[in-house]
Amino acid sequence: MADLFNLKNVEVGMPTLERPFGIKLWDGFSKFWTAIFGYAPENFRFTVGETYMSTLQETIIALVAYYIIVFGGRELMRNRKPFVLNGPFMVHNFYLTVISGLLLLLFIEQLLPTLVNRGVFHAICSYNGGWTKPLVTLYYMNYLTKYLELIDTIFLVLKKKPLTFLHTYHHGATALLCYTQLIGHTAVSWVPIVLNLCVHVVMYWYYFQSARGIRIWWKKYITIMQITQFIVDLGFVYFASYTYFTSTYFPWMPNAGRCAGEEFAAIAGVVILSSYLLLFISFYFATYKKDVKTGRPRRNTGRDALIAMAGQQLPGADGTTASIDDKRNSGAVTTGRSGPTTRSRKA
């Protein structure tokens, strides 16, 4: 394991197009991967039925288990006191911040030369642009992190926080979305993934700091980042899907040519990402829009626009409703102890 920290074979120097951060991150990632799996990441192949979590059956079983655990756990917690899990919650958000940041840097290192030398269309529509062997390895690593992110909801259940449709639907659908794009070989996959990683670095860092008791005023802008992310995502995905279907079935219509990927993956991407955009816009207006008539801020719950999976906030152990006082101006939530924490509303 000591060899993992040996940078002898890692390329280091002034930043270049192929080495934008001054150090060849892929070299370090390759050493780590090889030490864990016994072969270089360049030799990784996502093979349905052989690779871990590569079949639809495995994915469905994992997601069904997730929902059983979440809603079954909610019922088990109904007459119990909420757990205080600040320490584990900080650790969870910290390692997701680090993982998201490292994956983001690796994606940038792989994509920057392609974007500069071959252009955006090649990067999103060519197998040689957006579906290279290193990128497929990173797509798979990003896919696996979606199962780590399901732990977000476990914390909500144990802390007896409300479970909204937005939260529970988004977490499950994202794992399914990443799976469909992996088996569908969509070269445009890197666009939503890179943007999502940017948001997750900020978001998980926010939740890490909030768990430490640090009051942060810019929670609202995380939701704005999420909405912007989906708008940009859909611009690329709609374009890639449009030019694929028109060039394939309606060649007389204006198009830019074929785009790499399977049709079912394109449809899944369009449907799921579109639903995200609608849900997050609804959440934003329900949460942050002020009442024009009275000038008073609305409660930061989003209940008017989002369907709560839990129906309402879980009752407390004593039969009363657990007290949550949303602080509108700061985006923080004050619970029974001193110092602000936040309600998890992750994407």
Rank of each mutant, 00 (worst) to 15 (best):
Y67R: 04
L144A: 08
T34Y: 06
T59C: 06
V120E: 14
G87L: 11
E149I: 08
V232D: 13
L102Q: 06
P113D: 09
V70I: 13
Y276I: 00
T335A: 05
P82K: 01
F21G: 01
H122A: 06
L234F: 12
W205I: 01
L115Y: 07
S344D: 02
S54I: 03
S30A: 15
L76P: 11
W218A: 03
L156E: 01
V194G: 02
T246D: 13
T342W: 00
I99M: 05
K289M: 14
G235H: 02
I222C: 05
G331D: 12
L135K: 02
I99L: 09
Y276S: 07
Y276H: 09
F165E: 05
G101C: 04
E18M: 08
T334K: 14
H200I: 07
V237D: 05
F94N: 01
V10C: 12
S100T: 00
P251L: 05
K161L: 11
S330G: 05
Q181C: 11
R303Y: 15
F89S: 09
I267S: 01
Y139F: 15
N79M: 06
L85G: 05
G331K: 03
L25F: 07
V199K: 01
N86V: 11
A62L: 08
Y204C: 12
V12Y: 09
T223M: 03
L105D: 02
F283V: 12
M53D: 13
L150W: 11
L102M: 11
L144I: 08
M90C: 11
A266Q: 12
H200S: 10
V292N: 13
L176N: 03
Y242P: 01
L234C: 11
V232A: 08
G22M: 10
L112I: 12
K289G: 01
V194Q: 01
T228L: 10
D27G: 01
L273V: 09
K146V: 09
D3L: 09
W190V: 10
T51Q: 05
I36A: 14
M225G: 11
R328T: 10
G130S: 03
V270T: 10
A322C: 07
V98E: 00
I222V: 14
S247D: 13
D233P: 02
G129C: 08
Y139C: 07
F283A: 14
I23Q: 12
L76C: 04
L176E: 00
G339A: 14
V202A: 12
D3W: 08
Y52N: 14
R337Y: 13
R74A: 14
R343N: 15
G87Q: 14
E263V: 07
Y140G: 09
I307P: 00
K81W: 04
E11G: 05
F71W: 09
